[in-house]
Lab assay of single mutants.
Amino acid sequence: RRKSKRKPPPKKKMTGTLETQFTCPFCNHEKSCDVKMDRARNTGVISCTVCLEEFQTPITYLSEPVDVYSDWIDACE
């Protein structure tokens, strides 16, 4: 008699959501930077609500707010 092989359980999909508020690289306030994605103009704007620092970068249809933040961090270095 042959043993029946069980199929492995399906893999769980990533359910965690990406951050939309970030720590400002200038004033170091946590969750003080908000990202606005202007898909019509293909630009992402991130601004700090505390020190009013602002950064704008081009985006694509695949871009997420975390991509705008990482572009800002890269531009600071």
Results as ranks from 00 to 15, higher is better:
C51V: 00
L18G: 13
P9Q: 15
S47Y: 12
K31N: 15
T60Q: 08
T17A: 08
Q56T: 12
C27P: 00
I59R: 01
S63I: 02
K5W: 02
C76V: 13
P25D: 02
K31M: 09
P65E: 07
Q21P: 03
V45N: 09
V50E: 14
C33N: 01
L52P: 09
P65H: 06
E53L: 06
W72A: 05
P8E: 13
E53T: 02
K3R: 08
G16D: 08
V68F: 00
K5T: 15
V45F: 04
N42G: 11
S70Q: 09
Q21R: 12
S47E: 15
F22P: 04
E53I: 05
V50R: 13
H29T: 07
T49I: 01
L52A: 15
S70W: 07
N42V: 06
K12M: 10
R39K: 14
T57E: 09
T60R: 11
D67Y: 00
Y69I: 02
C76H: 05
E19N: 02
Q56P: 01
S4T: 13
L62H: 06
G44A: 06
C33F: 04
C33Y: 02
R2G: 10
E64T: 10
C33K: 01
S32V: 12
M14W: 10
L62A: 11
Q21F: 04
F22N: 02
G44R: 01
R2I: 01
L52M: 11
D34V: 11
W72T: 02
Q56V: 12
P9L: 13
K31R: 08
K11Y: 03
F26V: 11
R6V: 12
T15A: 11
Y69H: 03
T49N: 14
F26E: 05
S70M: 07
A40E: 13
S63E: 08
C33S: 06
L18K: 12
D67K: 04
G44W: 03
G16Q: 11
D71K: 14
C48A: 00
K36Y: 03
K13F: 07
P8G: 07
K5N: 02
T23P: 11
Y69G: 02
C48Q: 00
N28H: 12
S4I: 08
F22M: 14
Y69V: 11
T43P: 00
I73V: 13
P58N: 05
C76Y: 10
S47C: 12
T60M: 04
R2Q: 13
V50S: 12
R1Q: 00
T23M: 14
S32R: 10
V35G: 01
T60G: 07
Q56C: 10
R2K: 14
E30Y: 05
I59M: 02
N28C: 06
K3W: 00
V66T: 12
T43I: 14
S32M: 10
F55E: 01
D34E: 10
Y69F: 15
I59S: 02
E53R: 11
F55A: 02
F22W: 10
N28D: 04
K12R: 05
R1D: 15
C24E: 00
T43V: 09
V35T: 04
F55W: 10
E30C: 00
P9F: 14
A40I: 08
E19H: 05
F22S: 04
L62D: 12
S4E: 13
V35W: 02
S63M: 13
C33R: 02
R41L: 14
V50M: 07
S63C: 09
E64L: 13
P10I: 09
A40S: 06
T17S: 11
S70E: 08
W72N: 00
L18N: 15
V68E: 00
I73R: 14
P25I: 04
T17R: 06
Y61N: 14
R6P: 15
D34A: 10
V35I: 10
R6Y: 05
K3Q: 06
N42D: 12
R39N: 00
K7N: 15
L52I: 06
F26G: 11
T20F: 13
N42M: 12
P10A: 12
T23L: 12
K3P: 03
N42S: 14
V66Q: 08
R2L: 07
G44N: 03
S32H: 08
E53C: 05
M14E: 12
P25F: 09
K12F: 06
I46C: 06
T23D: 06
I73G: 04
R41A: 11
D67G: 05
A40D: 07
R41H: 09
E53W: 02
M37R: 02
C27T: 01
D67S: 11
K5G: 12
Q21N: 09
F22Y: 14
K11R: 07
N42W: 08
